[in-house]
Design a binder for these strands. Structure first.
Lengths: 299, 299
DNA sequence: CTGAAAGCGCTTACAG
DNA sequence: CTGAAAGCGCTTACAG
């Protein structure tokens, strides 16, 4: 038995990192740990990181740019070798500094303009358009959307695709039926309540992410509204329990694990610094289940 | 503008920590990030840590003792100031070393015997007993359980409470209706399938955690089994969508956020080393919804 | 091939 | 009060 084993010696990673000038640690900042989409993605990032010999430090911004900045600062001070971030909102001072400091950076799901870094995300436009088509085929004319913040790329993209798809098919979405949420459950719950109180309430509602979808479903459930008899409903993001509700929920699925893994694997190539990796844009996909029905149809 | 601002100077936390011999970082090792119970708890830990001026490094063991050990080693080498762990299974070599190294350690939810460290968890026995009573009141005699691993404390506790409650009320659980899962979805799915194939299939099934509950519900849904008409169902752990299914799911709720916060706040007092903090045991609570019905009753 | 020294970037105790 | 020096625990380049 060596003395190291005897004394339960553990090398001090702090000292080592200080000397070799790398930490074998990657940083990941996500907007919301309460969102299964991001935790699933974090898991995939973590798995890929482990495979490549890196540990992962995760920061949860809670959709709050202030918290996000704090985490970015901490991760930089802890000298992570690379950073994956899904920015809550717009550009922030630390993000700016990171970009110009040359620390390897990749955006995941969300990104901000004006910073040159590869992006890994799913393009939801086609899938949203397919959803609108599906709804129009079922005879819906009074469409509504519970949108995410338009200042985020996915928020803006899903909103635009929905509005445009409806417009193109001759059933433009009235302004009062466009509700802007913040990607969190509460906002979906409230938005759905407002939609139900409209004089001309919608016959079909699309929630632009899973959490707002959950909130919207809670409102519908509490109000005793029949799906799809009285209102058809669909949500962006697929979650395992969408197939368990009655009826099961029509949703748009993102290739979550692939996104996380792709982002993680991009970091080492960024570190080597020889080639600029290309952005990776995958497709989201409409999964038709039972929550959208013919307009005015029976439950 | 100082030169530090100009050059976007960032203090090197590695160097600082090496010198001051603390990292202002706490470590948390959870058995499964795919489990909303643990992510909710992680969130609470993180919030409390932030409030006290600590960052948090999270490790996900994936119910795998090997991964858990890896993470414990990494966290120790990175010299976290304290450690919260929810061990996947039994005692492991790194856990042992940590305990005798004097690094502040608290167990959260799960714990292992033979290591002296305070425990923060919810006691599920009363709630499970209330559930059995509820089921017996509804006339059920063929009860089944999808249990977690009996070598974990919560797994063993819930199993024992269920078996004992049934026995005490004169409706002992037949051995073939005791299925042992691993707290993951797949195992719940499989266990429920096996239960349905029994000659004398159960009239009421209890899943010992949320993920196995989800899996069990998926099997029931795919098999077209009516709840509670054909089978009554309840699950340990409450999750937000249990109230959205039709019928909504009777479940046992844990005070998740309180548990996480209590564990985090215990660490600084452990560090000061003056007092040994007491373990914190909170109560889980039965939330009766619609998924358990009178035996043989209509859907 | 082996072993002593230098240095990573901080903080703190100490000399001036 | 200010400023130079020592030292945290490693790794690596270098002298012997």
């Amino acid at each position: 038995m060596t003395s190291a084993e005897q004394l339960k010696y553990r090398p001090n990673a702090l000292a080592r990192s200080l000397r070799v000038e790398n930490t074998s640690t990657l940083g990941l900042v996500i907007p919301n740990v309460g969102n299964p989409f991001f935790t699933a993605m974090a898991r995939a990032v973590e798995d890929a990181a482990r495979e490549m010999g890196y540990s992962l430090m995760i920061g949860n911004a809670d959709e709050d740019p202030g918290k996000e900045s704090e985490y970015l600062n901490v991760l930089m001070e802890k000298r992570v070798d690379g950073l994956i971030v899904s920015p809550a909102r717009a550009i922030s001072p630390p993000l700016n500094e990171i970009a110009r400091s040359g620390v390897p950076l990749v955006f995941l799901d969300r990104y901000v303009k004006g910073i040159e870094a590869p992006v890994v995300r799913a393009d939801g436009r086609k899938a949203v358009d397919s959803l609108v088509e599906h709804l129009v085929d079922l005879g819906h004319e009074r469409l509504a959307i519970i949108s995410g913040p338009p200042e985020t790329v996915p928020g803006r993209e899903r909103l635009d695709a929905f509005l445009r798809g409806a417009e193109d098919r001759g059933v433009p979405v009235a302004e009062e039926r466009v509700k802007i949420g913040d990607f969190r459950r509460e906002s979906g719950l409230r938005a759905m309540r407002e939609l139900l109180e409209l004089n001309e309430s919608p016959t079909a509602v699309f929630a632009a992410n899973n959490l707002m979808g959950l909130g919207a479903l809670q409102t519908l459930s509490r109000a005793g509204v029949k799906i799809p008899g009285e209102i058809s409903f669909a949500s962006f993001d697929d979650v395992s329990w969408f197939e368990l509700t009655t009826p099961s929920v029509t949703a748009i699925a993102q290739p979550t694990a692939e996104l996380g893994a792709a982002a993680a694997r991009m970091l080492p190539v960024l570190m080597e610094g020889r080639e600029r990796p290309e952005s990776v844009i995958l497709e989201a996909e409409l999964v038709v289940r039972g929550s959208c029905g013919r307009v005015g149809g029976a439950a």
